[in-house]
Amino acid sequence: MTNSDHSKSRSLLLMVAGAKGAVASTVAVAVATLQKDPDTLLPSLTTRNSFPYLAPPHAVHMVGWDTQPAKLSDCVKTHGVVPENIWKRYQSNLDELLIFQAPPLDLNLKAQVRHLMQDIQVIRKQHSNALPVLINLLPACIQLDLENFMSLSQLYSKVDPSNFPDLTYVLASILSGIPVINFSPNHLEFPVVIQQAIKHHVPVCGRDGKTGQTYFKVVLASALKARCLHVGGWYSLNILGNADGKNLLNPERAAGKVANKTQLLDDILGYPVGQKYGEPCHKVHIDYYPPRGDAKEAWDVIDFQGMFGLPMSIRLNLQGRDSILAAPLILDLARWMAVLKLADRSGLIPELGFYFKKPLGKNPPLNFQDQVHSLRELEKECDSLNAHR
């Protein structure tokens, strides 16, 4: 049996940090749907016809961790993302998923990492033939500056994991040789983390999944730049009423997400929006509005100039479903990361910038055209490498 044939027999295993949140519980319903009724969900996956050397998309399982003691099906019901007539038929599948309790808060960082690595050993025994991928879906937290930490021992001695739980899961996964998707807005790609990823031959991608408003912002900004239309201002407002929105009421927790949503515009256009006025004119606001639930709404006002400096504007209103937009991207990313692990890629993967508000790595593609092109080239590279394994 060739390595390619062996890969075809290995299912994909999603290991989710924050497994009972709105996005993760929606992913769990999607996984159950893929297992039982794949034709319902396959049209939503951009990788459904890619990677023939992997098991088909419906060969997927999910495990995870959470602090919430309630049953997963109860969490799905509470979040209200997926209508009951859809998820109810998979209730038994949902409640059979292996969801560990998050590490005890009284443990230090090193002990929590060790605790999670023991959980991972249990998971690997139960899914011995699977290709595991960690997906970080923990909520936004207060940002820590760990850029000058150059060793694991420094991290272990200085970082309080209660302030930065994401780091525990990422380190445990990297030290276990498991690829990492950072779908959260939290900054995790510190030098010491990426050094460990390279050392353990682990690919890492992120940061901050690009699902709705920011996806269309990238598309529009790229189109305006292509037409040499100068953007003088861009006002963005989000309202959402889920747990993510409530968490972002804290300005310190919201800071990372706002920065991720703001910086990309200047990067795409190649100039600071508002330079004509001598101050930044790309405004991003996120408001918690409980009636919206997970069905967030976004408004954008875009002011730009054409020939002779004559002003024009665009108004965009998106009424989206945050977790419904996110779940297929997570499934696609998990397949990408499994393939990249098989292809022996390690460290940050800039070519996956299409999926993130803050693309990471060396010279990541920024505009929409380049991001799509990079994905195509990456797929060719992976296909070529895996064909010769």
Results as ranks from 00 to 15, higher is better:
A140I: 05
F183L: 15
D119Q: 13
S7F: 09
V193A: 00
D95K: 06
K110W: 13
H58K: 04
I314A: 05
H201P: 11
K257Y: 03
P328L: 11
L152N: 06
Q196P: 05
E279K: 15
V82P: 06
D322V: 00
P203C: 12
H201Y: 11
Q263E: 14
N386D: 06
R376F: 06
L131P: 07
H61G: 07
Y215V: 02
Q143A: 09
V170C: 13
A298Y: 02
V218Y: 02
E351M: 10
I99H: 12
D344M: 07
P280G: 03
E252V: 06
A295L: 03
A255C: 03
H115A: 04
A22I: 04
Q121S: 15
R10L: 08
E279Q: 14
I99R: 11
D244E: 05
V23Q: 06
R48F: 05
K199D: 03
I286C: 02
P290G: 01
A334Q: 05
N260L: 01
L171F: 09
L116E: 15
I174Y: 08
L240R: 00
V82Y: 05
K341E: 11
L249E: 04
S236E: 01
A55N: 04
V301S: 07
P132Y: 13
L41V: 07
V63P: 06
S173K: 14
E96T: 03
L13R: 08
G256Q: 08
P280A: 06
S222C: 00
T40I: 07
S92K: 06
H388I: 10
L14S: 14
S25Y: 10
N93H: 12
V63L: 13
I302C: 07
L229I: 08
H200F: 10
L378Q: 08
P191T: 01
S11I: 10
P104Q: 03
P311E: 14
N363D: 10
W87E: 12
A70Y: 03
V202M: 13
K276Q: 15
R315I: 10
R253L: 00
G18K: 11
G256P: 05
L107N: 04
V27E: 13
M62K: 10
H200S: 05
P185M: 00
R315T: 08
V113G: 09
L375F: 04
D95W: 07
L137V: 15
A338E: 01
L97D: 14
